[in-house]
Design a protein around this nucleic acid. Structure first.
Lengths: 213, 213
DNA sequence: TCCCACTGAATGAGGATTCAGCCCTTACCG
DNA sequence: CGGTAAGGGCTGAATCCTCATTCAGTGGGA
């Protein structure tokens, strides 16, 4: 289990301190509301120092994404390693996804909310690391189809987005509603995966999905 | 079928012209990139006039949301009216959702991308109209459970977010990838609903969902 | 002494927002 | 009727404010 989010201490390299401080500040004040001087203060660094390590404020946000995604991908692969069954793999994927959120609330806020306010992130940037993350889902589905466990008529490309969308929306709502205590992430994970898995499972015995007459 | 998006003509009330122009400009340049003067020019109105009808730039965005959601809700209810079967209702929900996107590409961009850059929309604002929209899903699930068509062990609250998340993510990707022609929305709608419906259906004959041994 | 990572006050851009009139419409009056 | 005044919607150039970003200078280490 990689660190993903480390403690900000004046011992560390300034770049690391700036990244960690940014996560906190972005989470607390939002990307726009966060001032460079806020980040600098929290990182115990001068405003100008930030520009020695990052092109500009948005670059800080994108670097958070790049670097934390790297660690997250490592965690994810470690977790999935050795699991063969596609249902269990999907279960593990969702569990890991939600566990990371829970363990790193500030980072979760940044990923689920603030990152999406970056014009560049949405319009120009190619978040390769996110594609890699999502590709894991697509692979699981594809392999399940090859072994015959999953319906072959589903488009893994679309299913990937649907599953990610479901997990992502639950994540967002958890982040936004955290204080109001509405979400039970574990329950969410298992129910979502159960529904998807149930709906994707190959049932050769029924031509039409079991409807009520 | 309400208008949802009307033509900007200098005959209309200025407020309407401003709303319509904003949708176009926000869609084209993004919320941040859109200047008040751009909107004013497109609406054939002076910069200052906008402030006679809206508190500020963000207020314009939120008013777009409020007013267009109102129309969308009307369309949705008209479509669902008369359909009883929960599976068909869900099918109709998804179809309507995607059809609105396709028919109003600029509005789709605003809803799927720009609106989410509004700090206020995400953090403080209570988008009642969105809750109403989502509540429709929750109701469908709940009713399906009452008639026994759907598994009773699923939490309609969570399922609502999962379904919405899946539709929403596909919508976002369609909006972002539109030019690159990757998404087939109809296929997406039917596959997603099929999977969800398959996964939520009450199958009393199988204790465990059909797994491969 | 030289080097260079670092500092933080000063700068400047970029637009959102304001507001002092303008002018069109309507009402009233001679 | 023609003329005048009041009212209010509208205008758009000028203002103003906020930070992100810069860069001349500092000081600690080799």
């Amino acid at each position: 289990m990689a660190s993903v989010e480390s403690q900000s201490s004046s011992k560390q390299h300034k770049r690391t301190r700036i990244i960690d401080a940014s996560i906190e500040v972005f989470a607390e004040k939002g990307f726009r509301g966060a001032r460079i001087s806020d980040i600098a203060r929290k990182a115990e660094v001068a405003d100008g120092t930030i520009y020695l390590y990052f092109r500009n404020k948005e670059d800080v946000l994108l670097c958070i994404f790049e670097e934390k995604m790297e660690e997250i991908l490592a965690v994810l692969h470690a977790r999935l390693d050795g699991i063969e069954d596609p249902f269990e793999r999907l279960q593990a994927f969702a569990a890991t996804h939600f566990q990371l959120l829970r363990d790193h609330p500030a980072l979760a806020q940044v990923f689920q909310v603030e990152l999406r306010q970056s014009h560049r992130f949405l319009r120009e940037y190619r978040p390769e690391k996110l594609w890699q993350y999502l590709q894991v889902i697509e692979e699981i589905v594809r392999e399940g189809q090859e072994t015959g466990a999953l319906r072959a008529d589903l488009d893994p490309f679309l299913v990937k987005w649907a599953i990610f969308g479901a997990l992502d929306e639950l994540s967002i709502q958890w982040v936004l509603a955290r204080k109001r205590e509405r979400f039970n992430l574990d329950r969410a994970a298992s129910q979502v995966v159960e529904v998807f898995v149930g709906g994707m499972a190959n049932r050769s015995n029924t031509s039409k999905v079991g409807r009520k007459p």
